[in-house]
């Protein structure tokens, strides 16, 4: 199992390194990720949301729905822990 995992890991790592050769250079200010959607957030954050912290305005306003989903994830995990570990388990397995 250990050898199989090492081989699988090395193969996957090699595939990923091969895939990273076409990536934009690290820190390139003209990469697609930095020039397509993000400038809109930086330029219009104060005008739309009056918040200088752009991360906050994206998190809470432009992509606020993802934050609601994140809150749901926390709630689900809390309920899951209560469900699994709660009191009242008289029987240990069936």
């Amino acid at each position: 199992m250990k050898i199989l995992s090492i081989i699988a890991g090395v193969l996957m790592g090699a595939a990923l390194v091969y895939g990273s050769l076409d990536m934009p250079k690290w820190g390139d200010p003209h990469s697609p990720a930095s020039t397509h959607v993000s400038p809109y957030y930086l330029q219009h954050s104060i005008e739309h949301t009056a918040t200088p912290n752009v991360v906050t305005s994206v998190l809470a306003d432009y992509r606020g729905y993802d934050t609601l989903g994140e809150t749901t994830v926390v709630f689900t995990a809390g309920m899951a822990c209560l469900f699994l570990l709660g009191k009242g388990r008289k029987r240990q397995g069936k």
């Binding site: 989903g69 994830v73 689900t76």
Partner: peptide
């Protein structure tokens, strides 16, 4: 957004 809800569904499924 799909990833976020995928994780909601997965966590609920594990529980």
């Amino acid at each position: 957004n799909l990833y976020v809800f995928l994780e909601v569904a997965s966590l609920a499924g594990y529980a």
